[in-house]
Computed example of a mutant assay.
Amino acid sequence: MLNIKKPALLLALTLCGQTAFANQTETLFDTKRARHIPVTITAADSKCTIKKKCPVAFIGAGYGMAHTDYQFAQQAFHQHGYLTVEVAHELKGDPSLNPEPPYMTTRMENWHRGVQTLEFLAVELAKRYPAYDFNQLTLFGHSNGGDIAALYAAIYPAKVAKLITLDHRRMLTPRNNNIAVLTLRGSDYPADDNVLLTPQELAMYPVTQIKLKDSRHNDMYDGGPKALVERMSKELNAFLLANK
């Protein structure tokens, strides 16, 4: 059963037969895992209907960062008619992210926990927001949040339409003709072997890899240099326009 705390901000208005909210911060409860999941949900301004559903984007943070630290991305999605769900993956009491390689093994517990959270939200929020498409998700994640998103795309490929990552470095980027991918790469750390596509693979799959000059992995959020945030916003907007 879904347990929802009173929203911090609730706009009670009806759009197309559903309740719409703006910047609704709340905590959902996954009874199966006895896990509280803090989220911030922002509905689109577009007139969405059950027959003509609007898109959905899940936003995941880098490890140790707040799930609300990517407002440049949330705003871009909002401008393109998305419902956005900013998800807090890391909770007090969770095991620390394992610092030892091989990461595809040692961090899989963390990633699977994140995947379970995303799937729980996709199922439960679809009941609350029937005018939004939770079966063709757009996933956005920075660093470890991008690794979680990439694993979700590997496990539930039929439910993912787009994947955008900011310098995820451990989980393999999907090689799937049905998933459009944008990955923006920092310039200070390399990705692990096979995470990124080879030139030959890039010719085969709808994946765009862009290395951002003089960009640091830890700066790829709202608090980074203004020029970097503007560049990331520009690339994200261009990708969303090209993959409507």
Rank of each mutant, 00 (worst) to 15 (best):
G224I: 02
L212C: 06
A227F: 01
G223C: 04
D219K: 01
Y221F: 15
D222Y: 00
A203Y: 05
I210K: 12
S215G: 09
L202K: 13
Y205C: 12
D214I: 04
M220H: 01
P206H: 06
L212E: 02
L202R: 12
A227K: 10
N218L: 14
G223K: 08
V207Q: 04
A227H: 07
T208L: 12
S215W: 04
L212A: 03
R231N: 12
T208C: 05
A227V: 08
G223D: 09
Y205A: 09
Y221N: 14
V229F: 03
L212N: 01
I210F: 11
D219S: 13
Q209M: 11
L202F: 06
N218I: 15
Y221V: 08
Y221R: 14
Y205H: 11
D219P: 07
D214V: 06
V207Y: 03
A227M: 06
Q209W: 09
L228A: 02
D219T: 03
K226N: 11
H217R: 05
S215A: 15
P206I: 04
D219G: 08
L228H: 00
N218M: 13
D214M: 09
K213Q: 14
D222W: 02
M204E: 15
R216Y: 13
Y221C: 13
R231V: 10
E230Y: 08
R216A: 14
A227Y: 03
K213L: 15
T208I: 11
Y221I: 07
P206L: 08
D219R: 02
G224M: 02
K211E: 15
D214Q: 12
D214R: 05
L202H: 05
V229K: 03
P225V: 01
P225Y: 01
D222V: 01
V207R: 05
E230S: 11
G223E: 03
E230C: 06
V229N: 01
D222Q: 04
D222G: 04
Y205G: 08
D214E: 13
T208D: 04
E230N: 12
K213Y: 10
D214C: 02
T208P: 00
A227Q: 11
K226I: 13
K211A: 15
L212W: 05
R216Q: 14
S215L: 09
L228E: 01
P206N: 06
V229S: 02
L202Y: 02
D214N: 13
K211D: 14
T208S: 12
D219H: 11
H217G: 08
D222N: 04
Y205Q: 02
Q209C: 11
I210L: 15
L202D: 07
L212D: 02
R231E: 15
K213D: 15
R231I: 09
T208Y: 03
M204Y: 10
K213C: 07
P206E: 03
N218D: 14
L202V: 08
S215P: 11
L212S: 06
Y205D: 07
N218C: 06
R231K: 15
S215N: 01
G224Q: 01
M220K: 00
V207A: 08
Y205R: 07
E230G: 02
M220P: 05
I210D: 09
